[in-house]
Amino acid sequence: MARVKVLKTYKIYIGGAFPRTESGRYYPLYNNNKDLIANICLSSRKDFRNAVVAARAAFGGWSSRAAFNRSQIMYRMGEMLETRKQQFIEELLMQGANAKSAEQEFNNAVDRLIYYAGWCDKYQQIFGTINPVASSHFNFSVPEPTGVVSIMADENSSLIGLIDAIAPVIAGGNTCVVLASESKPLCAVTFAEVINSSDVPGGVINILTGKKDELHSYFSNHMDVNAVVYYGNNTTMIKSIQENATNNVKRVFIYNQKRENPEEFQNPFYILDTQEIKTTWHPIENIGVGGAKY
């Protein structure tokens, strides 16, 4: 008799734990042959709010961690992802990818994580400036993370779209709440397991599954969210997100580029989007003659 397989329950990821949605609701996910793959959590407003609380609580620690340490943790995420190659490829196949595209997407995802891991302690040197003010002051500008970022990830991709959405945001010291692709949510939940085993502090990345139609207004309305990121081109939803964002002057980023070029989402300016520039002034004592002569 064949062994009965143990099926995986796909849950959400909030504050470093894997709860079921508080809503108790789910939606069935089918493969191309209309076979049921899994029941996926339909996250609610309350789940989102819990996730924001977790993200806010994690922000102080994550943003003030040494950039080098953030880099190591992100590299560790890449390592952990690599070791689960088979699992992710199976999930990509279940969600309609072919063997070649699944492998390609997986490889790109690992490489993308490593790419952004490397930026953690470098983008400040690219985007920071020393400003030669005319008065007797030392003056410099550095990028700092915007804060809690809510993200609605690309609908058309299960893994690489998720990595593109998360990596630049956390590399820059932000914390985030991510809504996975509604039609391809499997890799997001499994990626939460990667996060959970990579020394990423709980709350830095929170992952929800559910419907964008139901959740986008909460993602853009919440008063303790500093920036909202949306991947896609639903113009009605974009307008609604942009309008809601005004209630606390959220920064809004809409990315609707096509993924034809695999490196489209690979550059440090994506980190800069969720950064604030801080400028610091301090007087320079100017007693004595001229400059240093030797």
Binding site: T129, N131, P132, V133, A134, S135, H137, N139, S141, E276, I277, K278, T279, T280, W281, H282, P283
Partner: peptide, 17 residues
Amino acid sequence: AGVVWANTYNKFDPTSP
């Protein structure tokens, strides 16, 4: 905050964001 003045205040310069 976007601008922090230490031991000074309300200073501005074209080169300073």
